[in-house]
């Protein structure tokens, strides 16, 4: 991990003050962790002059279960003019998984946020149509959460007993937890 900050990291650290929680680079990927309340304004600054991170390449999340804050929502931004990528992250606690929506800033965030809601159960306030996108509408649970088991579906023919999750893949306890 390098200690020198890139110009855009310095800009965010200065503008956001203590709300820019962390800034680092790993293998050349520049990351800034932003407090979720300040996220929309940070994205808007980055989108416009002088940074021109106009393209939201990707928006996703990952579950740090059982650690807290449980989720990290990850935004990958791309600046075509400056040929630069930037990763913005925000942390969301498991008891209150809510993030302000990025749709007003990037129209393309619409489906990405629906996908994150669908698979992780993170809500985006201000989203125009936050409904499931990949899973069926009546599905229960959010499959990409770490505590959501990987199971086999029952099949039609007889003589097959569906395996329980631990028979398919043994669960690997996260580091720090006793097996």
């Amino acid at each position: 991990m390098s200690t020198a900050l890139t110009p855009v990291q310095e800009f965010l650290a200065e503008r956001l003050g203590p709300d820019a929680l962390e800034a680092h680079a790993f293998r050349g990927d520049v990351t800034v962790v932003v407090d979720r309340e300040r996220l929309p304004e940070a994205l808007r600054w980055l989108r416009d002059e002088p940074w021109w991170f106009e393209v939201l390449t990707d928006l996703t999340a990952w579950d740090r279960y059982p650690a807290e804050p449980r989720f990290e929502v990850v935004y990958h931004l791309l600046s075509l003019r400056r040929r630069e990528r930037l990763r913005i992250k925000t942390r969301v606690p498991g008891h209150d998984p809510v993030v302000p929506s990025a749709v007003p800033v990037f129209a393309g965030a619409n489906w990405f946020e629906r996908e994150v809601w669908d698979l992780f159960g993170i809500r985006f306030t201000g989203h125009p149509n936050l409904v499931r996108i990949l899973m069926p509408d009546d599905w229960e649970g959010h499959p990409l959460r770490r505590d959501y088991p990987l199971t086999e579906e029952p099949v039609e023919f007889r003589g097959h007993v569906p395996k329980v999750p631990s028979q398919i893949v043994p669960r690997v306890p996260p580091p720090g937890e006793d097996p």
């Binding site: 106009e54 393209v55 939201l56 390449t57 990707d58 075509l80 990037f106 129209a107 393309g108």
Partner: peptide, 8 residues
């Protein structure tokens, strides 16, 4: 629109 939707 292409940029806003992240089309590539």
């Amino acid at each position: 629109d292409a940029l806003a939707y992240g089309v590539t």
